[in-house]
Nucleic acid binder design. Structure first.
Length: 258
DNA sequence: ATGCCGTGGAAACCACGA
């Protein structure tokens, strides 16, 4: 079973690129972030025609998350991160597919830091960690994936010294990610490639992609039950080089079926 | 060191992103 995550940066503006990638990569499950589309503007028919069922949580202009699944209908578990009924951003959706719980998340950016946006990021992170702990406690096979807006270690940043005060790399952010992983989650990419430079995002400007000045911020966390089922993982880096592409590249994992 | 590019929505600029 292949599961992918892709921050599309506008699901409608990016539809040709998304369909091209789905056709090429054919993931069984694809978690999308930054739909930037309200609920009723989600391109369901085009995705159905491409062979995917979908659940999504849209929002006008910003955020928005979706889970696509080939052949089987995702069974929605929830569409908000528990813990704050005042939080109206669509940043989390969770479903069960083939017996695996899949949480698709878009963690807040948090810049500028410090400030209210950074406070929101840390508060959201705290709620995520509480929810993740519940998933661990349930002992079910689970995957948490999406745009975490965190570079966990220096190896994940092209010039770490420039990012120390950024919301994506500040001590508090990295510590929150570390706390999350230490609940018992496995960072799939780092399990298979502990020492390699691997990026999932490149800025649009300054020829960042051409210079490979990137960041690793899109992650797969595997619950203990899935840790030993990880067969492969990677980044579809070439997709970032396509015309009218997102600033993120798709990331994927392959899990043993039985 | 930096939103320099790109998206969406409303209004022909602005908010937001990482």
């Amino acid at each position: 079973m292949r599961i992918a995550t892709y921050n599309v940066n506008g699901v409608n503006g990016r539809l040709p690129v998304l369909l091209r990638w789905l056709e090429e990569a054919k993931p069984d499950v694809a978690c999308l972030q930054e739909l930037k589309a309200p609920e009723e503007k989600f391109p369901l028919q085009a995705l159905k025609d491409a062979g995917y069922h979908a659940i999504w949580h849209g929002q006008k202009s910003w955020n928005g998350v979706a889970i696509l699944s080939r052949n089987v209908e995702p069974v929605e578990i929830c569409r908000v991160l528990p813990g704050d009924s005042e939080d109206l951003h669509s940043r989390y959706i969770e479903a069960e597919i083939n017996g695996i719980i899949i949480g698709c998340l878009y963690l807040p950016n948090g810049n500028p830091a410090p400030g209210p946006k950074f406070d929101y990021k840390l508060a959201w992170f705290k709620r995520l960690n509480l929810h993740a702990a519940e998933l661990i406690k349930s002992d079910k096979p689970a995957v948490l994936t999406g745009d975490f807006n965190v570079m966990p270690i220096e190896l994940d940043v092209y010039k770490p010294e420039r990012w120390v005060n950024d919301a994506l790399f500040r001590r508090e952010t990295r510590e929150a990610f570390k706390d999350l992983v230490s609940q018992g989650w496995t960072d799939a990419i780092r399990k298979l490639y502990p020492k390699e430079t691997i990026y999932t995002f490149w800025d649009y400007f300054r020829n960042a992609y051409g210079r490979d000045a990137g960041l690793r911020i899109d992650h797969f966390l595997l619950s203990p039950k899935l840790k030993n089922k990880l067969l492969a993982a990677g980044v579809d880096k070439h997709v970032r080089g396509w015309e009218k592409t997102s600033d993120h590249a798709p990331v994927w994992i392959e899990l043993k079926d039985k």
